[in-house]
Simulated scan of single mutants.
Amino acid sequence: MDTITLAPSAVAAGKSQRLPVVTLFVFALIGFVLVAMETMPAGLLPVIAIGMGTSEGTVGLFVSAYALGTVLVTIPAITLTRGMRRKALLLAAVLGLMLANSVTTISNDVILSLVSRFVAGAFSGIIWGMLAAYGRKISPPRQGGLALAIVSTGAPVGFALGTPLGTWLGSAFDWRWAFAGLTAVVLVAGTLVALIAPDAQGQPGNSRLPVVRVLRIPGIAVILAVIFTWMLAHNTTYTYITAYLRATSSTLTVDLQLFIFGIASIAGIVLTGALLDRHPRLLLHGSVIVFISAAVMLLAGHNSTPAIVVATVLWGITFGGASAQVQAALTSAGGDNSDVANSFLPVAFNVAIFVAGILGAALLTHFDGLVMPIVMIVFGLIALLLTIYGRRTAFRIQI
């Protein structure tokens, strides 16, 4: 259990004088589940299709339905619930996520499964929209960046270990066991939140802005543009990494490259945690520059396995820290409306995922997989220019 010593002023503010490390890692565990839950069907397409007597294309809609739920529900849900106390809202969303995933686990009907995936995505968006601000609210102000970095570890670990583990479990036994395992992890995480997580106040009614006005807060639109372009650059290549490797002379396999990427992402989180509180703007500029450099190396060194491995490590390091860096910027720029500002983040991420799938598919009808690092370079450069443009409003020195 977290050891938390509260002063009267800290109690009023909902902040502890010590970093609530255990609670923050529980938040990271929830993030791990959200990533694994969204992406796991992609690794289980054949077995789910056989088990449900449908096509792989239909099962692929399990991912789309989840993403659609996140995109459509997150912002209005966060807007309607920003006056609620954070712990109660998180527990309610975790319970909803667990129930929706349980329906997917036992359902034999495709339509019911798609509906349950949509609902799970909706609850996922609510959780993503509040985790960052909740983590900072219960942490000392001087360690806000470190708190965000800890909470953000769940996503890269989910990419590195959660999805492959779920795919192996579903393939070795039954795909329903993979979904049931995620439900069990959600139950454990929710129980820990109920037992040890400090509570935090919602947003007072007189300080809330309409959603449109939150978007107009200086810096918010620029940050969202950076998220979209950076994640579009990332996801187009990540989604079609098989096509890229097929166009190279490398002996590297897809599963090994993604594993290397995931481990490097965890290293990126550690690096971000060490630097985010002291050098947030420099860290962001440097991350995007290294991301572009990795793309150049993927293109120029496509006939060299060592070059691809090095590029993958650099790529993973930059991706691992990206979430914490942009969440810190949104939280800082959003101020009292940081919960709503952060609710735009999963929407921007999922729209980028959606567009990346379409863009990559369109490009591969005319080019081979080497076009993917070119996409990374082009949109990475746009993201870099946006970080420079927004250095005074969106990416200030202090977070």
Score class of each variant (00 low, 15 high):
residue 191 T to R: 08
residue 192 L to E: 06
residue 192 L to P: 06
residue 193 V to Y: 03
residue 194 A to F: 12
residue 195 L to A: 14
residue 196 I to M: 12
residue 197 A to T: 07
residue 198 P to I: 06
residue 201 Q to S: 14
residue 203 Q to L: 14
residue 203 Q to T: 15
residue 203 Q to F: 04
residue 203 Q to Y: 06
residue 203 Q to M: 15
residue 206 N to L: 09
residue 206 N to M: 09
residue 209 L to K: 12
residue 210 P to G: 05
residue 212 V to F: 13
residue 213 R to A: 14
residue 215 L to R: 07
residue 217 I to K: 07
residue 217 I to F: 01
residue 219 G to S: 01
residue 220 I to D: 00
residue 220 I to V: 15
residue 221 A to R: 11
residue 222 V to E: 04
residue 226 V to H: 00
residue 226 V to I: 15
residue 227 I to C: 11
residue 227 I to V: 15
residue 229 T to S: 13
residue 229 T to P: 00
residue 230 W to G: 09
residue 231 M to K: 08
residue 231 M to H: 02
residue 231 M to N: 13
residue 232 L to C: 07
residue 232 L to P: 01
residue 233 A to W: 02
residue 233 A to L: 01
residue 234 H to T: 01
residue 234 H to G: 05
residue 235 N to E: 10
residue 236 T to Q: 06
residue 236 T to H: 02
residue 240 Y to E: 07
residue 241 I to F: 13
residue 242 T to A: 14
residue 244 Y to I: 02
residue 247 A to L: 08
residue 248 T to V: 11
residue 248 T to P: 10
residue 250 S to L: 09
residue 250 S to Y: 06
residue 252 L to H: 01
residue 255 D to N: 14
residue 257 Q to R: 04
residue 258 L to S: 03
residue 259 F to R: 12
residue 260 I to S: 11
residue 260 I to R: 09
residue 260 I to W: 10
residue 260 I to F: 10
residue 261 F to I: 05
residue 261 F to A: 01
residue 262 G to M: 02
residue 264 A to Y: 08
residue 265 S to K: 04
residue 266 I to K: 03
residue 267 A to S: 13
residue 267 A to E: 10
residue 270 V to K: 01
residue 270 V to W: 11
residue 271 L to W: 11
residue 271 L to C: 12
residue 274 A to P: 00
residue 275 L to R: 11
residue 275 L to K: 09
residue 276 L to C: 07
residue 276 L to D: 04
residue 277 D to G: 03
residue 278 R to I: 09
residue 279 H to A: 12
residue 280 P to W: 04
residue 282 L to F: 13
residue 282 L to P: 00
residue 283 L to K: 05
residue 284 L to P: 02
residue 285 H to P: 00
residue 286 G to N: 04
residue 290 V to E: 03
residue 290 V to G: 03
residue 290 V to T: 13
residue 292 I to E: 01
residue 292 I to M: 02
residue 293 S to D: 05
residue 293 S to T: 15
residue 294 A to H: 03
residue 294 A to D: 05
residue 295 A to S: 14
residue 296 V to E: 07
residue 297 M to F: 08
residue 300 A to V: 15
residue 301 G to A: 08
residue 301 G to T: 05
residue 302 H to G: 07
residue 303 N to Y: 10
residue 303 N to S: 14
residue 305 T to M: 11
residue 306 P to T: 05
residue 307 A to H: 07
residue 307 A to V: 12
residue 307 A to P: 04
residue 309 V to Y: 02
residue 310 V to A: 14
residue 310 V to K: 06
residue 311 A to M: 10
residue 312 T to N: 03
residue 312 T to A: 10
residue 312 T to V: 10
residue 312 T to R: 05
residue 313 V to I: 15
residue 313 V to K: 04
residue 314 L to V: 09
residue 314 L to H: 09
residue 314 L to P: 08
residue 315 W to G: 03
residue 316 G to F: 06
residue 316 G to Q: 00
residue 316 G to A: 05
residue 317 I to A: 02
residue 318 T to P: 08
residue 321 G to H: 07
residue 322 A to G: 08
residue 322 A to Y: 09
residue 323 S to T: 13
residue 324 A to G: 10
residue 325 Q to N: 10
residue 326 V to K: 04
residue 331 T to K: 00
residue 331 T to N: 13
residue 331 T to E: 04
residue 331 T to L: 08
residue 331 T to C: 06
residue 332 S to I: 03
residue 333 A to R: 00
residue 334 G to T: 05
residue 335 G to A: 06
residue 335 G to S: 03
residue 337 N to D: 12
